[in-house]
Computed example of a mutant assay.
Amino acid sequence: MLLFCLLLGTALPALADGWRVVGDEQFAPYSFQYGEDRQPRGLDVEVVQAVLREAGIEYQLRLYPWARVKQMLALGDAEMAFQFAGTPERKAQYELVGPLRSGATVFMTTRKIPLADWHRLEDLRPYVVGQVNGYAYEGAFDRFELVRDSSAQNPRQLVAMLLAGRIDIIVGDRLQLMHFVREQRAEQQVRILPRPLVEMPRYVAFAKGDSARAQRFASALQRLQRAGKLDAIYRRWGL
């Protein structure tokens, strides 16, 4: 019992002082695991790390499946999570800080599908639209009645389903979808519809009411953005 108490005592300060930060493990090139030791990498990982350093915050950063990221934040197993879409629903759920960046949410299809572009959501009704389970994209689109396939657990799987002909259209971040298409050397097989669904800002999230941590991160982010100190990260990853 004494040994247990001593071990507990040495563990508590790290948990009390450091932030447990979690993000999506399948959101390349923004966040993904690399190498045999599965180190977090990506544009958003680098931005988050830079802001935490600027704020003088000790932290542990890990990447998990998206459903687990949201669960960890909800259960208090993480102090901060990224990268959340800036939808009204998310703003009602969390303390959102940012945006870290913005990205175009687009529709991608194959050259076999005759749809040249879309103007109203009704234009998508004849098709099976694939999306990642648990992702929020844009309020009107999320609520609109469409034939949807939400069986994909991550964007890489979503792209694979499109290339296999299991679904007609997929929705997602332009830079990310093209990253996975290039992995498959399938650029000639796909088309991105010209009109984007939305230019979607991406945020970090804290539990609702955790305003102290949110403000500390926000202040550091604003300092770096005003000084242009994040621009090199954005350029390096092609944003």
Rank of each mutant, 00 (worst) to 15 (best):
A232V: 05
N154Y: 13
G238Q: 09
Q131L: 10
L52F: 09
Q188S: 13
Y234E: 05
V69S: 04
V48N: 01
I170S: 03
L15W: 14
L224R: 09
T110S: 08
Q33C: 08
L177F: 12
R68M: 05
V171R: 01
P88V: 10
L221F: 02
W118A: 08
F206S: 05
Q157G: 09
L162I: 06
L8R: 09
A220Q: 09
N154R: 03
Q157I: 14
A218C: 05
Y127A: 00
Q184K: 14
P196Y: 01
D117G: 06
T105R: 02
L177R: 08
L12V: 15
D17W: 11
A207N: 11
Q71V: 03
M200H: 08
R195I: 07
F107Q: 10
E46Y: 01
S150T: 10
L3S: 15
A50M: 08
A232M: 04
E138H: 12
Q176F: 00
R90V: 05
R41T: 10
A14D: 12
P65L: 02
R68L: 10
P114M: 14
L121Y: 10
R125M: 09
A212E: 15
R174F: 04
A218L: 06
F217E: 02
R53Q: 11
F4L: 13
T109E: 03
R226K: 13
R90Q: 14
P99L: 12
C5W: 07
R202G: 03
Y137L: 13
D168Q: 10
P40G: 07
D117K: 04
D77M: 06
A116D: 13
P196W: 00
A74D: 15
A74C: 03
E79D: 15
E36T: 13
R111A: 01
A220M: 11
H119C: 00
L230E: 01
G228Q: 13
A11M: 13
E25M: 11
A218G: 04
V204S: 07
F32N: 02
A152C: 08
W66V: 01
Q176M: 15
R174I: 05
I169F: 06
A232F: 12
A212Q: 13
Y59R: 10
Q26R: 14
L61S: 04
F27P: 00
W19H: 03
F32S: 07
P201W: 07
Q184H: 04
R125F: 03
C5A: 11
K91L: 11
D24P: 09
L100D: 00
C5I: 15
